[in-house]
Amino acid sequence: CHSECLGNCSQPDDPTKCVACRNFYLDGRCVETCPPPYYHFQDWRCVNFSFCQDLHHKCKNSRRQGCHQYVIHNNKCIPECPSGYTMNSSNLLCTPCLGPCPKVCHLLEGEKTIDSVTSAQELRGCTVINGSLIINIRGGNNLAAELEANLGLIEEISGYLKIRRSYALVSLSFFRKLRLIRGETLEIGNYSFYALDNQNLRQLWDWSKHNLTITQGKLFFHYNPKLCLSEIHKMEEVSGTKGRQERNDIALKTNGDQASCENELLKFSYIRTSFDKILLRWEPYWPPDFRDLLGFMLFYKEAPYQNVTEFDGQDACGSNSWTVVDIDPPLRSNDPKSQNHPGWLMRGLKPWTQYAIFVKTLVTFSDERRTYGAKSDIIYVQTDATNPSVPLDPISVSNSSSQIILKWKPPSDPNGNITHYLVFWERQAEDSELFELDYCLKGLKLPSRTWSPPFESEDSQKHNQSEYEDSAGECCSCPKTDSQILKELEESSFRKTFEDYLHNVVFVPRKT
């Protein structure tokens, strides 16, 4: 048989008469490798580009789960590009990614509803959504962080984005990388972005840091009482949809009607710091009717980097990364020049730590249904340095008659930039024990000054392991946590139920 035959053949030295091919099969003959313009397919066939392209389009058009959109890589027609490569849609070739590779997620039936953290986790790592997304989240724990972890990498949506009755959302900033909504599939009414009845939605994105392009379709905003109209108009300008909307697409009466839409800028007039305090004062603000001013709200939190936005980490279910302080308005003076500047002394802060701070007014709604208010920009203030805590785990070892090696770990709280350490030492008198000992005694162990690591005695271990207080009263049991108490109650309830079950099964009433 021919060298490319495997198993047997019907005619000697003829690659077209093989029972099976050793390498690849091409047009009725066995070959060692697939010549151009053919590609290896499933490690035994040679196919042309049209064959591989037909497989790709067949799966793409069917949208069946589990099928493969075949691509070409290293002269092979394979189910998908290997790690580190992405497909070129024009020629199906796998090309190296520039940075992290995109991950295209194809949605069944063309859309997916995100109504819980669990459903959001199914899209973790996706960068391109081939379909439409509907966000409908009523509640949950730590929602802002969970949504950002699972949806934060999405850069492109081919269909539309719909935010509907998501009472738990305060902001859409968890879509931190969303840059493009194509609108290839539109919501009824030709809408590519749809926001309806979101009672706590206050911000779409921080438009000073976020760009969003909507290729096709219109915007729809109705019944978002805490979303200011200025935020919607800003989205029109940034996304390129200005002029597409009709009169009733953006409701003037049901958007922002319960919001404090600040239209003035508060400026800080005085800032002073110490290692654990920050004193702030800002310019006074009074609405047209000074009785509408209820006070100020001061927001602050630790910020290692200057990239904080107002609604980071917030949701309507209680999660809030900001510390909020309510401040009463100052006494009002008739003389504008003698107006008191409101302020606040922030206490209990960490030394040498940068804080993000902003302040906003708290006002009631005027009778004319106009909203007044003022808010400052987010500023960054760093507390002063102070003395560091003591170095940890000092170790001293003498390696000769004239040297001592000293080692330690950095302090747990540096409280500033540590530039150097101060080492103090003092000579001590020799131990009298060394002169009084009889060095001729056998088995004498000389006193040693070398360091030995501390260890816990058996008594201390027994005390720590004991669940009861000892007789001397030195140790006591740790208080039980809520989960331990709940577990004990469940076990007790189970024992009672099981005992009742045994009584009912074992003891049967005697027939009379």
Rank of each mutant, 00 (worst) to 15 (best):
S158M: 10
E264P: 07
I188Q: 04
E283R: 14
S402A: 15
L293F: 09
F275N: 04
L252V: 14
L186Y: 04
A120C: 12
F174E: 00
A385V: 03
G183F: 03
G152C: 09
V397F: 14
L180V: 09
F221P: 00
V308N: 04
D292M: 07
T273S: 14
L298A: 02
E262C: 08
K350Q: 14
D328S: 08
T118D: 06
G183T: 02
V359I: 09
P287A: 06
R165A: 13
L143M: 15
G140T: 07
L178M: 06
R347I: 07
R176F: 04
D206I: 04
T185V: 15
S230Y: 02
A149V: 14
V324R: 13
Q199P: 07
I188D: 05
V128T: 13
Y194M: 11
D328F: 07
S171C: 08
Q354T: 04
S260Q: 08
Q258G: 03
V170Y: 09
Y167Q: 15
H222Q: 13
S400T: 09
W286E: 05
T383E: 00
S402Y: 13
N307D: 10
S239D: 02
F220N: 06
G152D: 00
W322Q: 03
N211H: 10
S402F: 08
K112A: 11
S401A: 13
I114G: 00
S116A: 04
D249W: 11
I379D: 00
E187L: 07
G110S: 14
D367R: 08
D257T: 00
N190R: 10
K112H: 10
K234V: 13
S116H: 10
L186A: 05
T185S: 12
G295T: 05
T361Q: 14
D384S: 07
R165H: 06
D377S: 07
A316R: 15
L229A: 10
V325A: 15
Q121P: 04
I181R: 00
L331Y: 05
N198L: 05
H222A: 04
G131R: 00
N200M: 09
Y300E: 00
D115P: 03
L279S: 07
D335S: 14
Y160P: 01
D326V: 03
P287K: 03
S158C: 13
D384N: 13
Y160W: 04
R176P: 11
P394H: 03
D289V: 04
S230P: 15
V238F: 09
L219I: 11
Y380S: 02
F193I: 09
S389T: 15
P304M: 11
G110Y: 12
D289I: 02
I134T: 14
D393L: 06
L147E: 01
L331D: 13
V324H: 13
D335T: 12
R370H: 03
E156I: 09
L392S: 14
A356I: 06
C105K: 00
N255R: 03
I157S: 00
S158V: 07
M297D: 04
P351A: 05
L227R: 00
S401M: 04
E111S: 15
E122V: 13
S158A: 13
K162A: 02
H210M: 04
A144P: 09
W282K: 00
K360N: 10
S173P: 02
L153E: 15
R291M: 10
I137A: 11
G295N: 11
K242L: 14
S166V: 11
C261E: 04
C261Y: 02
D377L: 02
K301L: 07
R291I: 10
L331T: 13
L212Y: 02
G256M: 05
F358P: 00
D249V: 11
S321F: 07
T127K: 05
I395A: 09
P288E: 12
I327L: 04
E122T: 06
L252R: 09
H233A: 03
I357T: 13
L147F: 09
F220T: 10
D377F: 03
P351M: 04
L161W: 00
L201Q: 01
S389Y: 05
S158Y: 11
T213E: 12
G243E: 11
N198M: 05
I232M: 06
N224T: 04
T364Q: 01
E184S: 14
K267Q: 11
E122C: 03
G183K: 02
P330V: 14
S269V: 11
I378V: 03
I327F: 05
N211R: 10
S400L: 06
D289T: 04
K112Y: 06
V381A: 03
T185H: 15
N224V: 01
Y194I: 13
N136W: 07
W286C: 12
I214V: 14
G140I: 11
L169G: 03
I181S: 00
S119W: 03
D335W: 13
P287S: 07
D315Q: 15
K360I: 13
E237R: 04
T127R: 11
R138K: 06
Y194S: 09
C228A: 03
W322N: 01
E156Q: 08
A120Q: 03
L229S: 09
W352L: 14
Q354I: 13
I378C: 06
I135G: 00
L345G: 05
P391Q: 05
H341Y: 09
D249F: 07
E246P: 13
T215N: 15
Y223S: 10
T371M: 03
T273E: 06
L169W: 01
H233S: 12
T353L: 06
S173M: 09
F358M: 05
N399G: 07
I278N: 00
A195I: 13
R176I: 07
F174T: 03
V170W: 05
G217L: 01
E283K: 07
I214D: 00
S116N: 14
P329R: 13
D257G: 02
S402V: 15
D384H: 13
Q382T: 10
R176Q: 14
V381L: 14
G159V: 03
I129L: 15
G189S: 08
F221I: 15
S338N: 08
E283G: 15
G139R: 08
V359Q: 00
K409Q: 06
K162S: 14
I135N: 00
F290T: 05
E184I: 09
R179T: 11
W344E: 05
I214N: 02
N248P: 11
Y305E: 04
N190T: 07
Q403V: 03
M346C: 05
D312S: 07
I154T: 05
P336M: 02
T383V: 04
G373K: 05
G240Q: 15
V381F: 01
Q306A: 14
P410V: 06
L252N: 12
L212S: 02
W207V: 05
L266W: 01
D335F: 14
D328R: 09
I357S: 01
G256Y: 05
A195D: 00
I278S: 00
S376M: 01
Q306H: 12
F221Y: 09
Y300I: 10
E184Q: 15
